[in-house]
Amino acid sequence: MKRIIFFLAALPLSAPAIAQVTANLPVTCTPSGICTRATAVTNPDGTNIGASSGTGTSASQVQGNAASGATDTGNPVKVGGVYNSTLSPLTDGQRGNLMQGSRGSLNVTLMQADSVNPLANVGDNSDAQSTGSTARLLTVSRNYVWNGTTWDRAPGSTAGANVVSKGGLSLATGQVSVTTSSTLVAAARTGRNKITMSVGAANTCAFGNTGVTTTTGFPLAPTVGASLTLDTAAAIYAVCSATTTISFIEQY
Score class of each variant (00 low, 15 high):
4 I>D: 05
4 I>L: 10
5 I>K: 02
6 F>T: 04
7 F>G: 03
7 F>I: 03
7 F>T: 05
9 A>V: 04
12 P>L: 08
16 P>L: 09
18 I>Y: 10
19 A>H: 04
22 T>Y: 15
23 A>Q: 11
24 N>F: 10
24 N>C: 11
26 P>K: 05
28 T>H: 14
29 C>M: 04
31 P>F: 10
31 P>L: 12
31 P>Y: 08
31 P>G: 14
32 S>T: 15
32 S>C: 06
33 G>W: 02
34 I>H: 06
37 R>M: 09
37 R>F: 07
39 T>Y: 06
40 A>N: 12
40 A>H: 07
41 V>G: 03
47 T>P: 05
47 T>W: 06
48 N>E: 12
49 I>Q: 13
50 G>C: 14
50 G>K: 08
51 A>Y: 13
62 V>W: 12
62 V>T: 09
65 N>E: 07
71 T>N: 04
72 D>L: 11
75 N>M: 05
77 V>T: 07
79 V>I: 09
81 G>K: 01
82 V>N: 01
82 V>K: 01
82 V>Y: 02
85 S>A: 14
86 T>K: 10
87 L>Y: 11
88 S>V: 12
90 L>V: 11
91 T>N: 10
92 D>R: 06
92 D>V: 13
93 G>A: 08
95 R>V: 04
96 G>T: 05
96 G>S: 07
101 G>C: 00
102 S>R: 00
102 S>W: 01
103 R>H: 08
105 S>Y: 04
109 T>L: 00
114 D>P: 02
116 V>F: 06
116 V>C: 02
116 V>P: 04
116 V>E: 10
117 N>M: 12
118 P>D: 14
121 N>G: 12
121 N>W: 13
127 D>G: 09
133 S>N: 13
134 T>M: 13
137 L>A: 07
137 L>G: 03
140 V>K: 05
141 S>I: 06
142 R>A: 05
142 R>P: 01
145 V>R: 01
149 T>E: 08
150 T>V: 10
152 D>P: 03
152 D>E: 09
154 A>W: 06
159 A>G: 07
160 G>S: 01
164 V>L: 15
166 K>N: 13
168 G>C: 14
169 L>N: 13
174 G>D: 04
174 G>P: 02
176 V>Q: 13
178 V>D: 00
179 T>N: 09
182 S>Q: 01
184 L>A: 11
189 R>K: 14
189 R>V: 15
190 T>F: 02
192 R>I: 11
195 I>V: 15
195 I>H: 03
199 V>Y: 00
201 A>Y: 10
205 C>R: 00
206 A>Q: 01
206 A>G: 03
206 A>M: 02
207 F>M: 00
208 G>E: 00
209 N>C: 06
210 T>Q: 13
222 P>R: 05
222 P>Y: 08
229 T>H: 06
234 A>Q: 12
236 I>V: 14
236 I>L: 15
238 A>M: 02
239 V>R: 00
240 C>R: 00
241 S>W: 10
243 T>Q: 15
247 S>L: 02
247 S>G: 07
247 S>P: 02
249 I>D: 08
252 Y>G: 08
